[in-house]
Simulated scan of single mutants.
Amino acid sequence: MQNTVVRQTDSGPRLNEKKSFLANLSKFRELGLLGFILVISVVVQLRNSSFLTIENITDMLTNTAILSILAVGMMLVLVTRGIDLSIGATLALSGMVVAQVVSHNPELNPLLAIVLGIVIGIFCGGIIGSLISALGILPIIATLAAMYIFRGLTFTISDGKWISSYQMSESFLRIGTGSFLGIRYLVVIALIIYAVAYYFINHTRTGRQIYAVGSNPDSAKVSGISETKILLLVYSVMGGLAGLSGVLWVSKFASAQGDTASGYELSVIAACILGGVSIAGGSGKLSGVILGAILLGILDNALPLLNVLPFWQTGIEGFIILFAVIVNTLVKRSVERNNLLRRKI
């Protein structure tokens, strides 16, 4: 009996000393991602001195702004164990409708154009959220169907035609090209979204409930959390951000097309995965998602500067995403294993 007690007493410190490196890594995942971004930046700068110029950094931040805004919404969706494949189509639909309204009403206030885009996005996201929360349709099925429907609506509304810069007002185009105190409006809008999302996730009851639903839906239900309301909210927020991004996209590129942002949802999901968001739900940090979007933006900008062929650019990005998924999986398993051992002790 005494020997048994000694063994149990001695096992505690030994297990603590042998904590998995991967388990510890989970606490500093964002720091590691930041370090990786800095290493890549230094390497590219050594190969091409134009990479870290003020002008190029400004371009990278501007080009990454829309991606990071969408990634914030996608993070909330993934946290609830869902996915949204329709955001590219929602973006295109919102952008096309707003572009047509602006072309027929040149005096329209740019803020009203932004509000219109957000409303369209929320409506689209609300439909998807209702299908998933009320009817119990799988997120991947509901959003895939919505993607085709919204994309079809975009082509129908536009009659297959483009809307170009000469059909848009100068004030509307300034949303994507103008600046405030030397900072592009796109970056300013993205920073506002980050601040609101940070407060919502960390300092509101609803923000905590979103993570509770993703971590353990059954326990959340027992605690009185309405999964239906949470899912409807999350997909509506995702839709609203996609609608906003549609306005920003059309203003930035001065063009509205039926195939705008086709396949862009995959880049958004990739940014979330790189940032450490678990597809299994329940975990993900805003800082990681932003860094994931920045990493993708850096790769898109740096690889052409290094004269890497387009095929290899896609392959390299895919390899980095796969590596991130493997690391995240190993980290999660290691954390779960250590938690299980602690409970047994």
Rank of each mutant, 00 (worst) to 15 (best):
335 V>T: 04
340 L>W: 10
299 L>P: 04
307 N>A: 12
338 N>Q: 15
317 E>T: 15
340 L>E: 13
339 N>I: 05
298 I>N: 04
300 D>G: 09
300 D>K: 10
298 I>M: 14
283 S>D: 02
307 N>C: 03
335 V>W: 02
322 L>E: 03
286 L>W: 00
316 I>R: 14
306 L>M: 11
322 L>H: 00
319 F>Y: 06
328 N>T: 07
327 V>G: 03
284 G>R: 12
338 N>E: 15
309 L>K: 10
311 F>L: 11
330 L>C: 07
325 V>R: 11
329 T>Q: 12
301 N>L: 06
313 Q>K: 07
340 L>K: 14
340 L>C: 05
337 R>G: 05
316 I>L: 14
325 V>W: 01
327 V>W: 04
299 L>A: 09
314 T>R: 12
316 I>G: 11
317 E>Y: 11
296 L>S: 05
290 I>T: 01
302 A>E: 10
324 A>H: 02
290 I>R: 05
314 T>K: 14
325 V>G: 03
305 L>M: 13
285 K>I: 02
297 G>M: 08
295 L>K: 07
313 Q>V: 06
312 W>A: 10
298 I>Q: 13
300 D>T: 06
318 G>A: 05
285 K>S: 11
301 N>D: 06
295 L>M: 14
291 L>Q: 10
290 I>F: 15
331 V>N: 13
296 L>D: 09
327 V>P: 00
315 G>L: 15
298 I>S: 09
289 V>R: 02
315 G>Q: 12
334 S>G: 12
306 L>S: 09
333 R>E: 04
340 L>Y: 12
287 S>T: 15
322 L>S: 14
296 L>M: 13
308 V>C: 06
